[in-house]
């Protein structure tokens, strides 16, 4: 299942040929460089490691620099392995994968990103609880969760109960998004719908099994 690393650029609207509006997320996908090829014989499984977003060498520590040197490539900010059942012969360290090599228009993809962090938030924001009554003599319970369980039986709070806590900044995968358009000269793909994370955040783009 080959994929690429990318960056969220932003959202906009495009029109189809029939004239309907489509909400799209613009994603810069690649170009990614193959850094390491893992084979069944050598590593016990087969995969390729891709690098994305090149950075100056002074930002890289020595162990990582050695890893890049082995591949004979310049350093990258993000590395990611993609499991592949069959390794094709032309996938060697140093090969650059572009959007059009991996994806085509109409493909379904899975997009993994990190959602925007919301900090420690209450149940109204986090789980869409209704909160308490706003009037009729109510005090201090406008955004409270209410009861969290019965008294002597069970004498405890059940595990997994929805309570205030940290929201966001989680890895979120959205599956089955369709590529509406590919712009190869800017390494862009236009995907229908929204994707987790702020603009400029990194994404893992995987092709879906068809």
């Amino acid at each position: 299942m080959l994929g690429l690393l990318g960056k969220k650029i932003g959202m906009t609207t495009i029109f189809t040929e029939e004239g309907t509006e489509q909400p799209v997320t613009v994603i810069q996908a690649g170009p990614c460089t193959v850094i390491q090829v893992k084979t069944n014989e050598h590593d016990g499984y087969s995969s390729i490691q891709l690098g994305y977003d090149s950075i100056p060498p002074k930002l890289v520590n020595k162990p990582m620099m050695g890893h890049f040197k082995n591949a004979g490539v310049k350093p990258f900010r993000k590395l990611r392995e993609f499991r592949l059942e069959e390794l094709s012969k032309d996938l060697t360290p140093g090969k650059v994968l572009k959007v059009e090599d991996v994806f085509s228009e109409g493909d379904k993809i899975d997009l993994t990103g990190t959602s925007k962090g919301k900090g420690f938030s209450g149940v109204v924001k986090r789980f869409n609880f209704k909160g308490g009554p706003k009037s009729h003599g109510q005090k201090d319970k406008h955004r409270s969760a209410g009861s969290i369980g019965a008294s002597s039986l069970p004498s405890r709070v059940f595990k997994g109960l929805k309570m205030p806590g940290h929201q966001g900044n989680k890895t979120i995968t959205i599956k089955g998004l369709r590529i509406l358009k590919i712009i190869p000269e800017d390494n862009l793909i236009l995907v229908k719908g929204s994707v987790a994370g702020p603009r400029g955040s990194y994404l893992v783009i995987k092709k879906q099994f068809s």
Binding site: I9, G10, T12, I14, V26, I183, D186, L188, G200
Partner: peptide, 14 residues
């Protein structure tokens, strides 16, 4: 940078 890309993406639809 990303604004420029967005403008370029939108251009054919304007």
């Amino acid at each position: 940078m990303s604004d420029q890309i967005m403008r370029k993406v939108e251009k054919p639809y304007l």
